[in-house]
Design a protein around this nucleic acid. Structure first.
Lengths: 126, 126
DNA sequence: TTGCTCCTCACGTCACGTGAGGTGGC
DNA sequence: TTGCTCCTCACGTCACGTGAGGTGGC
């Protein structure tokens, strides 16, 4: 009884990611291992596609696979889960703010080095 | 004839980095292999300290070890070297600008998700 | 003898990409 | 038979940190 058979290549195309990445997510416990065809090929359903789209979006927003796996395997469905997710998002925003400040600081230092270098007549060691 | 003997532990303390990092830099060709004492211990001079301080500063500004090694081993001393360095710095600033834009965009998306999540009454799958 | 420093591998981290070598199904 | 897809390892990437197991010098 195969209703919605989908092999890894098609799933990868639909999700817009590579096959190796799908296998990697499975190995990392982010994606549930699918059933197998008699040939040994992985056979996915639509749920797998939804999961992949979610994982990819979360990754693009800066969450690690561990963080994503923790959310997916959250023991409870409901308000606690939602509250937990919101807390993680706020933490991630705070992390981004720290990072942004650091990068802006680096940028400012690099900008300040240029005129110094320009005006230096002597041969520096570095 | 040992004038300025300095073993790796002291060098690490002075440079403010770890011993393993110094050995790693040597293995990567960023730091010239020092002479050895009869015991096999590495024996550094003041130049090594200057190199390490330079490498550490460049790393903190976002340059990779490969980029740093390329600068250190630049075949010529003089204006071409300086021009090359300035070009790399400007490239790095441009890279940082791209990265800053990306991170700010991620931050904005995360911010926009929070109220959506708050107001959603139904149980989402994710 | 006791510590402290140093030595050389080798593995773990993070999220995959890229072969290598082999098989299934039309 | 030819291709295409799929399979499972295993290694490479980046910049180290952290043991493991052993030695030198006071």
């Amino acid at each position: 009884l195969k209703v919605k058979a989908m092999r890894i290549g098609l799933l990868a195309t639909r999700a817009g990611i590579s096959c190796s990445r799908i296998r990697f997510y499975e190995a990392q416990g982010v994606l549930t291992p699918p059933s197998r065809l008699s040939s040994g090929y992985r056979d996915y359903d639509e749920r797998a596609l939804q999961t992949l789209l979610f994982v990819d979006r979360a990754r693009s927003l800066g969450f690690s696979l561990q963080e994503i796996a923790a959310h997916i395997h959250f023991p409870e469905r409901g308000s606690a889960r939602k509250a937990h997710l919101m807390a993680r998002i706020q933490e991630k925003i705070a992390e981004l703010d720290v990072l942004l400040t650091e990068l802006q600081s680096k940028r400012a230092v690099l900008e300040s080095i240029l005129p110094e270098l320009q005006s230096s007549l002597r041969e520096d060691q570095y």
